[in-house]
Amino acid sequence: MISPELNMRLAGEDDVPAVAHILNVVSEGVIEHLLTGVVPGMGPEKLLQMVLMRGQGAYDLKNIVLFEVRGTLAGLLFSYDASLQKVPAVMEGFIAKAKLDPVRPLLEAAYPEALWINTFWVADEFRGQGLSRLMMSMAEDMARDSGKKALALHCWADNARAIRFYEKAGFVKAGATPSGGPLLERHPAGGELWVKPVAGTK
Rank of each mutant, 00 (worst) to 15 (best):
A109Y: 00
P105L: 07
M135P: 09
A98H: 11
D145L: 11
S137E: 07
G130N: 06
A160P: 05
L153K: 13
R133P: 07
H154E: 11
M142S: 10
E113H: 14
A150P: 02
A123Y: 01
H154G: 10
M136I: 00
P105F: 12
A98I: 03
M138P: 11
A114R: 00
D101Q: 04
A143D: 02
D145V: 09
V103Q: 04
A152G: 04
A139R: 05
E113K: 12
M136T: 00
V122R: 02
R161T: 09
L100C: 01
W156R: 13
S146A: 11
S146E: 14
Q129D: 06
K99V: 05
V103T: 01
P102Q: 02
N118M: 15
E125S: 15
A162P: 04
C155D: 00
L115D: 01
Y111W: 13
K99L: 10
E108T: 15
F120N: 07
L151S: 00
A157R: 13
S132Y: 08
L151T: 01
D124N: 09
S132P: 10
R127K: 05
M138W: 13
R127H: 06
V122A: 15
A110G: 09
L151M: 03
M138A: 09
A139Q: 03
P112V: 14
A160V: 10
D145A: 12
P102M: 05
H154C: 10
L153H: 12
S146Q: 10
R104E: 11
A139Y: 00
D141L: 13
W116N: 15
A150S: 08
L106S: 07
P112C: 10
A143Y: 03
A114W: 05
Q129L: 14
D101I: 12
L106E: 10
E113A: 15
N159W: 05
A110M: 07
F120D: 02
G147N: 06
Q129H: 05
P105C: 13
M142Y: 08
T119Y: 15
H154P: 07
E140Q: 03
A114P: 00
D124V: 14
A123T: 03
E125Y: 06
L153W: 02
L107I: 09
A110S: 14
L153Q: 13
K99N: 11
P112S: 12
D145C: 06
P105D: 13
W156S: 12
D158H: 06
A143R: 01
D101F: 02
V103N: 02
L131P: 00
M136G: 03
L115H: 11
A109W: 07
W116Q: 15
M142T: 07
D158F: 07
L100G: 06
M138Q: 13
A139H: 07
G147E: 01
A123N: 02
W116I: 15
T119W: 06
A143L: 06
L153P: 14
L115W: 01
A110E: 07
R104K: 05
